[in-house]
Design a protein around this nucleic acid. Structure first.
Lengths: 374, 374
DNA sequence: CTGTTAGCGCATTCAA
DNA sequence: TTGAATGCGCTAACAG
């Protein structure tokens, strides 16, 4: 019965003396893990009030050097770990941001997450991660997440029901990353259409005329935009774009696409792929079948993954500032939590076309700093 | 002043009648986001007590269908999002696990994280991620993390001061992943020494006699074990192992190592590398310089990253059940939180040697299911 | 089946 | 510079 508080159901509600926890048992000598040290045990051990303990721990108010030291010692001896939930309840803040991603294969998500975590940490926020792929009830998971965080960032391609996003929003700040801007929800992203157009123009510049877009424009908002840029470039060149080859961009799909090309089901002298994994896989299978890339057919991707530097020919692609995108999202979340207004226009970060050999340019020695264009 | 509670500083502490929040204002008609809906507002709106609201939300106790519906409606209308902190404080746990990783480049960490998140989610736990690379005060970050979670998993190679691990442990369950088992701290990992020995024996089987290990055995516990297996294989073959080439395994290091080989500073007819990124990079630079792999020199790696299937020759390597490792860690954490005893012996998961062409075997068509050995 | 009540551990006025 | 008291929103006995 050391910690004496809130327990006077007997006495009349007059501020009875409540004997300052008299020097009864001088508490256990030293050592040993108090599994449940609380601010009360620390205060008692230091011989101060919990308010004082709180002050030194928060660095708030002014506490004498001597008292501070006593408290710090007690904290140390007791191995005190504050209970975050109690603090959160009192201050009404979780000091945590949520991030919703579909999954983590490939460098894109990881980069994004690293950027997000890094900036969040700088701002004193921890990050709680939610992966949607394979989850049965995503809406439930997101609501659960909302319970523990102050704000949430969602990747556009994460399978989160728009209804959920809207519901959350209004309760907690939400930002959509690389998604289609929704009414009243802030979004950040990397530029797509313009770079796609530049990239396509570059391929056109090699004299290719029969280009096909590989990837599903309706699968994700950024793919949609890339396709739009592709189409724009073709039209500007007086060409009529063929129907895109709509495949999801898992690695395995590349083989199927390659087969269709080899069998003549698809005819093209250049492939503009929705991302590098797809492009890489297709190129590899084509090469295995004896086709020359880019001689017979050019292949370009998007994302500039590591492998794109190692294959031959090097993969021509587009690099996005993915890490910065993550940082930006964390940053905006934090500002919004602290009262900043929702930004009406999406923030879009510039991207960079990386020219290597697969587009038809002379092969470069691989794994060297890429040539920059744009 | 709708929610009437805990406010009778006037009346004597006798259980005064406290007028049941008489049907004063019938509350706002419909619609609109109550920014701060609480269990009280929901209860009031549904015309029940907060206990009932809690019951339907927790699925605990028995509540009549009609009442349940009223509550659910109120929750819906008010767009009620419970405050996790309050619940955590009351039930005294966070329903969250922490995961400490150095960073997220390459597929290893991502896989691990996916496994961890997936299993944690199944168990109803959310995951809070902490990346140590680039953090100034890691100990502080970890303590901060400990504040919000019930248990923590740490990757062995994460730069977490052992002292912190020990401090945390005893307060919250801790498991070390792929690290050196520490006294009194549970650990899980993938098998290293034995597979390394098998792999080395395989290379030896191709007639190579001058093998060198590339990677720093003191850099991470699992590298240490792989090196040990390497040494064991050589000794068993009557060979004296050369000093390992101690480099960190960032991608950039490969070039430097390749240079030393080309310049004759290092002589070897086979390289056993600490991981695939290193092996890949070295092989690539060697090839660029005109060396034949595996003709002139064999190169093998560890991890079986995606690129290892795409390069030629295919990279011979060792696949670890990384995802399963993550799942196992989450699983153990959860069990420990729920009272399970600390496992004295480390749980170690089996690995698999993947034979492709870079070790000296006949080149395989790439990007096909790997041949299994072991 | 439902309501009352007492904390959970902490931050924070308000006094002293 | 310090302490006493109050409440954050929720769960969980305990009554009824």
């Amino acid at each position: 019965m050391a910690t004496a508080r809130k327990q006077n159901p007997d006495a009349t509600s007059t501020p009875a003396v409540s004997g300052h926890s008299a020097p009864s048992a001088p508490s256990a000598p030293s050592a040993a893990h108090h599994p449940g040290a609380t601010i009360y045990s620390v205060a008692e051990r230091a011989g101060v009030s919990i308010a004082t303990v709180s002050r030194v721990l928060q660095g708030a108010g002014t506490v004498s050097a001597k008292t501070t030291q006593k408290v710090l010692d007690a904290v140390d001896e007791l191995d005190y770990v504050p209970l975050g939930a109690a603090r959160s309840l009192a201050v009404r803040h979780h000091e945590a941001h949520g991030l919703v991603l579909p999954e983590l294969t490939g460098p894109y998500y990881s980069e994004l997450l690293m950027g997000f975590e890094s900036r969040a940490a700088e701002l004193g926020q921890s990050v709680t991660l939610l992966l949607t792929d394979g989850k049965a009830d995503i809406a439930r998971a997101v609501r659960q997440l909302a319970t523990h965080v102050d704000a949430i960032a969602v990747l556009g391609s994460a399978a989160m029901p728009p209804a959920v996003a809207k519901a959350l929003h209004g309760k907690k700040p939400v930002v959509i990353i690389a998604g289609s801007p929704q009414e009243g929800i802030e979004s950040v992203g990397a530029e797509n259409a313009h770079s796609a157009q530049k990239l396509t123009e570059h391929v056109l510049g090699h004299g290719r005329r029969s280009l096909v877009f590989v990837g599903d424009p309706d699968g994700a908002p950024d793919i949609h935009d890339r396709h739009a840029g592709f189409v724009a470039a073709l039209r500007a060149a007086g060409l009529e774009p063929a129907e895109p080859v709509r495949v999801p961009f898992r690695e395995g799909e590349g083989e199927a696409v390659a087969e269709r090309i080899l069998s003549g089901d698809i005819t093209a002298d250049a492939l503009v792929c929705a991302n590098d994994e797809l492009a890489l896989s297709i190129m590899s299978h084509l090469q295995d079948a004896g086709r020359d890339v880019p001689g017979d057919i050019a292949v370009v991707g998007w994302d500039d993954v590591m492998t794109s530097r190692y294959v031959r020919p090097g993969m021509t692609t587009v690099r996005q500032p993915v890490r910065e995108l993550g940082e930006l999202a964390a940053e905006r979340l934090h500002q919004r939590v602290h009262g900043a207004e929702l930004l009406a226009a999406p923030r879009v970060l510039p991207t960079q076309v990386i020219i290597r050999g697969s587009c038809g340019c002379a092969a470069q020695p691989r794994a060297t700093p890429p040539t920059r264009a744009t």
